[in-house]
């Protein structure tokens, strides 16, 4: 692995900003390599799709493709589970925690980036330490806490917990990002009578958009994929997120593999689409951000 890596930059990376159409054959080589890698990255998920489409009795056959594609599996999986509700829970949880992270992290990051205040270092340390905790280690405490609050099986619980475990990264990235935006622009606005909060919203936020998008997408994807807390804090199939709902295809004696993979595909596709949609904004935001 290491040797291959060391060689690769040499063949591919003299200058990232090489003028258009400079080296035709080289571009082709790069494209071929990139397309090959893209295929490699997608292959495991393609196999998931194929497995999802296998007829049940061909699941343990040593074949690349089944004799026929059982599209009805995708319909059955819908009937045989609470997938629709799980999907809804996942969307609400991922969306809700992303929003909450934005509301909470942005002001904190802004203030921390712009002001020197006592306890600033301590605050950043607290945030960094939070990043080191995995909810997997804290499940019992979380369960006890939300049981006592009577909030088990609630969507709010999952929103709050997911937001909290993603705060660290968001605060961190946003602080860094906002710190790189010159303060003079806001100061000018504030001289004109805008409040600090107004300046943050009207001047800094648009400039910080790429950083915000990064933090948001990170939160969204992590919450969307979260499993351990969902498993512990929800017990009713209808209130479980998708990742946990899929677990219910594992029975005491049997596993419905094609349903598992069908549901997985259903879970993956929206995020990839969301990302494809947002990446464009990130790219345009990037240019705006680098004006500096």
């Amino acid at each position: 692995m290491a040797t291959a890596t060391a060689a690769r930059p040499r063949t591919t990376g003299p200058s990232p900003r090489s003028p258009k159409r400079a080296f035709r054959p080289r571009t082709l080589l790069i494209a071929a390599l990139a397309w090959g890698l893209a295929a490699l990255f997608l292959a495991p998920y393609l196999e998931m799709v194929i497995t999802a489409l296998r007829p049940r009795e061909e699941l343990r056959d040593r074949t690349y493709l089944p004799s026929s594609f059982e599209w009805s599996n995708f319909i059955e999986v819908w009937k045989e589970s609470t997938l629709g509700q799980n999907l809804q829970v996942s969307l609400l949880v991922a969306g809700g925690s992303t929003l909450l992270v934005l509301l909470v992290a942005l002001p904190a990051a802004y203030y921390t980036a712009r002001m020197k205040y006592r306890g600033r270092k301590l605050f950043l340390l607290l945030v960094l330490v939070t990043q080191m905790f995995q909810p997997t280690a804290l499940l019992v405490g979380l369960y006890r806490e939300f049981y006592q609050l009577g909030m088990l099986n609630s969507i709010w619980t999952l929103i709050i917990t997911n937001a909290a475990f993603n705060l660290a990264f968001a605060v961190w990235i946003l602080t860094a990002y906002i710190g790189s935006i010159p303060a003079e622009l806001e100061e000018a606005a504030m001289v004109d009578g805008t409040s600090r909060f107004g300046a943050m919203i009207r001047v800094t936020l648009p400039l910080a958009l790429p950083g915000v998008v990064t933090a948001l997408i990170f939160t969204f994807i992590t919450s969307w994929n979260e499993f351990a807390m969902g498993l512990t804090l929800t017990t009713q199939p209808e209130s479980q997120p998708l990742t946990v709902g899929i677990n219910n295809f594992v029975g005491a004696y049997t596993v419905q593999w094609n349903y598992i993979f069908a549901a997985s595909v259903v879970a993956i596709v929206p995020v990839v689409i969301l990302f494809a949609f947002i990446e464009r904004h990130v790219v345009s935001g990037l240019t705006a951000g680098s004006v500096k």
Binding site: Y143, R144, Q148, T235, Q236, P237, N247
Partner: peptide, 20 residues
């Protein structure tokens, strides 16, 4: 409350540990 066979013992431990 019906819990997946593979998870029920863990869930019940959580319940007992929290007096629930």
């Amino acid at each position: 409350q019906i819990i997946n066979w593979n998870d029920i013992d863990k869930s019940v431990k959580n319940m007992i540990q929290t007096d629930n």
